[in-house]
Simulated assay, not measured.
Amino acid sequence: MGTHLITGAGSGIGEAVAEQLSKRGEDIWLIARNAGRAAALRQRFPGARTLIGDLADPAKLSWAFGQQEMPVEVDSLLHIAGVVQLGEIGDLGVKTWQEQLNVNLLAPAEVTRLMLPSIRLVKGHVLFVNSGAGLRAGAQWGPYAASKFGLRALADSLREEEHANGVRVTTVYPGRTATAMQLKVHQQEGKDYDPARWIDPASVATAILTALDLPRDAEITEITVRPGQ
């Protein structure tokens, strides 16, 4: 049984991962934006512990975590939270870019920095849920793709830096997954949304746990998950 710190556990892939780990009897810590969301997560996952920190304001995470009890040892840090706002580069202002870069890239970098001592203690695992947009940028996906390309670079650099410390680093690239974010994307694209066409979040969660459960003689560095239909 291990200790796992998860962002984005309120819905979608993060919720599915938290559910699977909870069913296995693992200790889970869930990062929430505020006290209200933290209480809702504890109700959804009895026995879970929460940390309050706003990923949209990564500069304040160090202070926020410093005011709370923290896990001493972290077997896995799972970066699953994310935001998206589509639009053409010629129409998007700095605020739209900053929000996506903060949540999707800068917050994972800062949370990783803050938790690395606890991860190194047990030769733990850092896992980033990226996106197909982290491999290829399409029209109207500029800021989101930029944040995800950066997240890939963060993971690759971290893997090189922490290999000697026994820390494993994995990036997961899901295709379109039936989540609340995907519904928002379809609305922005002006398309009808049929969740049955896309990956079940539980399937991505299974891929994530496969990487975590791999014996220590090997490391899954990247996983690409695509809709099966």
Rank of each mutant, 00 (worst) to 15 (best):
residue 157 S to V: 13
residue 51 L to C: 00
residue 164 A to W: 11
residue 74 V to D: 01
residue 21 L to S: 08
residue 99 E to G: 02
residue 33 R to P: 04
residue 186 H to V: 06
residue 221 T to G: 08
residue 228 G to E: 15
residue 73 E to Q: 15
residue 23 K to H: 14
residue 115 M to G: 04
residue 227 P to C: 12
residue 13 I to M: 09
residue 52 I to G: 00
residue 2 G to Y: 08
residue 185 V to G: 06
residue 213 D to H: 10
residue 100 Q to K: 06
residue 220 I to Y: 05
residue 128 F to A: 02
residue 202 A to W: 02
residue 123 K to G: 13
residue 36 G to L: 01
residue 114 L to S: 01
residue 126 V to K: 00
residue 136 R to H: 14
residue 12 G to K: 10
residue 99 E to M: 05
residue 196 A to G: 12
residue 86 L to M: 15
residue 122 V to H: 00
residue 138 G to P: 04
residue 227 P to E: 14
residue 153 A to T: 14
residue 146 A to Y: 03
residue 82 G to Q: 09
residue 35 A to I: 01
residue 61 L to Y: 01
residue 67 Q to D: 04
residue 114 L to A: 03
residue 4 H to R: 12
residue 204 V to L: 09
residue 220 I to A: 00
residue 58 P to W: 04
residue 26 E to W: 03
residue 123 K to P: 12
residue 175 G to E: 04
residue 193 Y to N: 06
residue 17 V to S: 11
residue 143 P to C: 09
residue 139 A to Y: 15
residue 159 R to H: 08
residue 206 T to G: 13
residue 175 G to C: 11
residue 116 L to P: 05
residue 32 A to E: 02
residue 137 A to M: 14
residue 86 L to S: 10
residue 136 R to Y: 07
residue 139 A to M: 14
residue 127 L to H: 05
residue 58 P to G: 06
residue 26 E to K: 07
residue 26 E to R: 14
residue 88 E to A: 15
residue 130 N to Q: 11
residue 101 L to I: 11
residue 86 L to P: 07
residue 101 L to W: 00
residue 64 A to L: 01
residue 55 L to E: 01
residue 167 V to N: 14
residue 73 E to H: 09
